[in-house]
Lab assay of single mutants.
Amino acid sequence: TTEYTFTDDEEARRAIEELKKRGLTFRYEKHGTTWRVRVD
């Protein structure tokens, strides 16, 4: 499991789109302004 942290909404959304394109399994949660994206 790899975890990424983003504080920029645009950056987080781009990363999420990219992961979807690659067909990877991931989860994300947003805490205030911080996004945590975990890739299995």
Rank of each mutant, 00 (worst) to 15 (best):
Y28T: 08
F6Y: 10
K20Y: 10
A12F: 15
R38Y: 15
T1C: 15
T33E: 12
I16G: 02
V37K: 00
F6M: 02
L19T: 00
R36L: 15
T7Q: 09
D9S: 08
G23D: 03
R14N: 09
T34W: 08
R27H: 14
L24N: 04
K30T: 04
T33V: 07
T5P: 01
R27L: 07
K30G: 01
R27P: 00
F26N: 01
V37W: 02
R38Q: 14
K30H: 06
V39S: 02
V39W: 04
Y28M: 09
T7W: 09
E10K: 10
R38M: 15
V37N: 00
T34G: 06
F6N: 01
Y4T: 03
K21W: 05
E11V: 09
H31W: 09
T5V: 14
A15I: 11
T34S: 06
T2K: 10
W35I: 12
D40H: 12
I16E: 01
R14T: 07
T2S: 07
Y4A: 02
R38S: 14
R38V: 15
R36Q: 06
A12P: 01
E3H: 07
F26E: 01
W35R: 02
Y4D: 00
A12T: 03
K21V: 07
D9T: 05
F26H: 02
H31I: 15
E10T: 11
F6G: 02
R13V: 07
T25V: 11
R13D: 04
T1N: 07
R36C: 14
L19P: 00
K20N: 06
R27T: 15
F26S: 01
G32K: 03
Y28C: 14
E10I: 10
H31S: 11
D8V: 05
E11T: 13
T25L: 10
R36V: 15
E3D: 06
T5I: 15
T1M: 12
A12I: 04
F6W: 03
E29T: 12
Y28L: 12
Y28A: 14
E3A: 04
R14Q: 09
R14H: 08
R27G: 05
R22G: 05
T5C: 13
R38T: 15
G23Y: 03
E11Q: 11
L19H: 01
L19I: 06
R22V: 05
K21E: 07
T34D: 04
